[in-house]
Design a protein around this nucleic acid. Structure first.
Lengths: 230, 230
DNA sequence: GCAAAAGTGTTGTACTTACACCCATGG
DNA sequence: CCATGGGTGTAAGTACAACACTTTTGC
């Protein structure tokens, strides 16, 4: 009786598509691939795949990310579900989009290369298959919102970063210029970064100090009723 | 071959659950029902149902809303997809939550009564089935965000409203008190409301002027680079 | 005439914006 | 010695928060 009620209904393929954001060359990039199967084989596409019985949506997203990049424990966040009847010309598929934030430089693209994966700037995206352009747009809006009031951008770096890099990253995400002194003032007011003794000497002769994000200090900061804002 | 690739994958039941928000007695309410089927029959639940083959997610959401309330053309927005393996004790179901904004007063609950539907304040919600409490929480957060920077709250009213009602509504959504003069100052600065000659004489002897939201003015306002903010 | 809600301005504070020069270093 | 990016403070303007009294009218 119970089974009857549930099982009498239509079932659907559920796909997960990943918008993998990386920061490189002062630009926000998305890791795109040539679609490996028909229809629209070889067209630019997000990395996607089908959800399987034993896994949650979140687990399916991690699986897809791992399949294409061999990376685990990556920060991911759901963007939303896309369910138009004709969104996928290959069949009826409901897709759930997730974005992931990774360090593009240290990112192992050897495996991704097998799939013709490339980092492409969000400001010059090609036409992607199906509704994937819409997914990227929605993901960017969500990322802009989250980045403005939560310290998620640090996931783009391997621990340490210079203030200039951090500002370049925010400019790439917001797609606007920021004032250097005002940006640094906000940062130093929140007092959430630790200055290292080490300098990055690659980008300038003088060298720029590296900083790290202090998670403990951030937790206290929030407990005390403050709000992260950049 | 194409069909093979798609069809070899697992298929899932997809449900849509509706968080129907209404404004009544100076509180933000959700229309809840007693779950009509096993498992957890008669427990408090959101209004939900299964998606069918021929319809999009959005259409399925409209269908569910219509089924329980006989209303069409209601403002709805997707909250997100919920896909934990064991979220529904009756079987493997991925659910997509939507919220809807309605005028609770003029709302036809005769049909809803058939389902034991009741308006319950979001501040004193009972335990709902499955992950429905989480869905409501997420919906409230999204509503708070949207209400702060988009003129969606007017969907709670049938056209006209008093400024006091509008403020009460924002206080219910934000779950905090607002300053009357500051609130009205912001409103009059944006200049998006039209004052009617008519007064509401129910809530006070003096009477409060009714206002309407001017959509054309809002569109110009946005074109000119302004931002809605309340 | 009084209770109950409607309506109305000002001031101090905090935040945001705009803006320009010196510093350190490698080549 | 010079080119390049790193680093720093101040002043003006804007937005936000706090605050209390008068008005209207049905009973």
């Amino acid at each position: 009786m119970l089974q009857t009620y549930y099982e009498n209904n239509d079932k659907f393929l559920i796909a997960v598509d990943c918008i993998i954001f990386g920061f490189q060359d002062k630009e926000l990039n998305v890791l795109l691939t040539r679609r490996p199967v028909e229809p629209l084989k070889n067209e630019w596409s997000l990395m996607g795949g089908f959800m399987e019985n034993g896994e949650s949506l979140d687990q399916a997203a991690e699986k897809i990310l791992f399949r294409y990049t061999s990376h685990k424990d990556i920060y991911m966040e759901q963007v939303g579900a896309y369910g138009d009847v004709d969104r996928d010309s290959g069949g009826r598929v409901v897709s759930v989009a997730y974005y992931a934030l990774v360090n593009a430089e240290n990112f192992n693209t050897s495996r991704a290369k097998k799939y013709d994966a490339k980092w492409l700037s969000v400001s010059k995206l090609p036409k992607l298959v199906f509704d994937h352009n819409k997914m990227v747009e929605d993901a960017i809006k969500l990322l802009q919102y989250k980045a403005s009031n939560q310290p998620i951008v640090f996931k783009f770096f391997d621990e340490k970063f210079t203030l200039t890099e951090l500002q370049d990253l925010y400019e790439a995400i917001y797609q606007m210029q920021l004032d250097k002194r005002n940006f640094r003032k906000k940062l130093s007011n929140m007092n959430l970064l630790d200055k290292l003794d080490e300098k990055d000497k690659v980008n300038s002769r003088r060298g720029a100090y590296y900083y790290t994000f202090n998670k403990e200090r951030y937790e206290k900061f929030i407990e005390e009723g403050n709000r992260f804002s950049l």
